Computed example of a mutant assay.
Amino acid sequence: MRAGAHTDYGSLTILLPQPGSGGLQIFTPEGEWREVPPVPGAFVINIGDLMARWTNDRWVSTLHRVVNADGSAVRRQSLAFFHQPNWHAEIACLESCLAPGEKPLYEPVLSGPYLMSKFQATVKPAA
C-alpha cells in the first residue's frame, strides 16, 4: 500500500501520472476498486471534500488509494496540484446546488481551519 483509501481535503486535485506509474485506484459506486491507468498527456482530476460541500454532494469526493499493483519496487511518479481555497474563504452550499425545499447537507466551514482539522485528525497522538 502506498497511500491508504482517502478523499482529498480541498476542492480538487489535478494529477499528471507519468507513463508506467500504475497503482492509482478509485472506489466505484458498485463497491469495487478500479485501476486508473495513466494516459500519456492526460490529467486525472479528483473532486475533493470542499467541492462536495459547495455542491451539496452533487459532485462527491473521490475515494481513492494508491497500491503497489504489480508488487515491484518501481516508484510511482505523478505531478500533483492540490487546490485549496483561500484560508478565510467560507465554504457553504451554493444556492444553485439546492433543489426547491432542499437543505444543505453540511454546515459552512472556513477553508484553512477545515484543512488543518483534517490534517490533525490523521496525526497519531504522542505516547
Score class of each variant (00 low, 15 high):
residue 122 T to F: 00
residue 74 V to L: 13
residue 43 F to N: 03
residue 106 Y to P: 09
residue 66 V to D: 02
residue 67 V to H: 02
residue 96 S to W: 06
residue 59 W to T: 00
residue 65 R to Q: 14
residue 8 D to Q: 08
residue 107 E to N: 05
residue 40 P to C: 02
residue 120 Q to T: 10
residue 102 E to K: 04
residue 32 E to M: 08
residue 48 G to Y: 08
residue 38 P to R: 06
residue 76 R to T: 04
residue 66 V to R: 01
residue 7 T to D: 10
residue 72 S to R: 07
residue 4 G to C: 09
residue 27 F to L: 15
residue 86 N to I: 00
residue 98 L to F: 14
residue 57 D to Q: 03
residue 65 R to I: 07
residue 107 E to Q: 13
residue 23 G to H: 09
residue 86 N to V: 02
residue 70 D to E: 11
residue 116 M to S: 14
residue 98 L to R: 12
residue 118 K to H: 03
residue 69 A to P: 00
residue 44 V to P: 06
residue 92 A to M: 01
residue 44 V to A: 09
residue 104 P to G: 09
residue 98 L to Y: 13
residue 10 G to K: 06
residue 109 V to E: 05
residue 83 H to S: 06
residue 81 F to W: 05
residue 60 V to I: 12
residue 30 E to K: 11
residue 26 I to C: 02
residue 79 L to Q: 03
residue 94 L to A: 15
residue 63 L to A: 10
residue 39 V to D: 01
residue 10 G to Y: 04
residue 30 E to L: 08
residue 11 S to Q: 12
residue 1 M to F: 12
residue 111 S to D: 08
residue 74 V to F: 03
residue 2 R to D: 10
residue 18 Q to H: 15
residue 108 P to R: 04
residue 100 P to W: 10
residue 61 S to G: 15
residue 113 P to M: 09
residue 125 P to A: 13
residue 73 A to D: 15
residue 30 E to V: 00
residue 83 H to T: 02
residue 85 P to H: 04
residue 95 E to N: 13
residue 101 G to N: 12
residue 90 E to P: 08
residue 75 R to T: 08
residue 124 K to Y: 07
residue 3 A to Q: 12
residue 71 G to F: 01
residue 60 V to P: 00
residue 76 R to D: 06
residue 3 A to W: 11
residue 10 G to E: 04
residue 50 L to N: 03
residue 111 S to N: 06
residue 107 E to W: 00
residue 62 T to R: 00
residue 37 P to Y: 11
residue 43 F to A: 14
residue 54 W to Y: 11
residue 59 W to K: 01
residue 24 L to R: 06
residue 24 L to I: 06
residue 106 Y to E: 09
residue 110 L to Y: 11
residue 25 Q to N: 08
residue 28 T to G: 05
residue 55 T to A: 02
residue 31 G to Y: 10
residue 2 R to P: 00
residue 68 N to P: 03
residue 5 A to P: 10
residue 38 P to V: 06
residue 89 A to I: 00
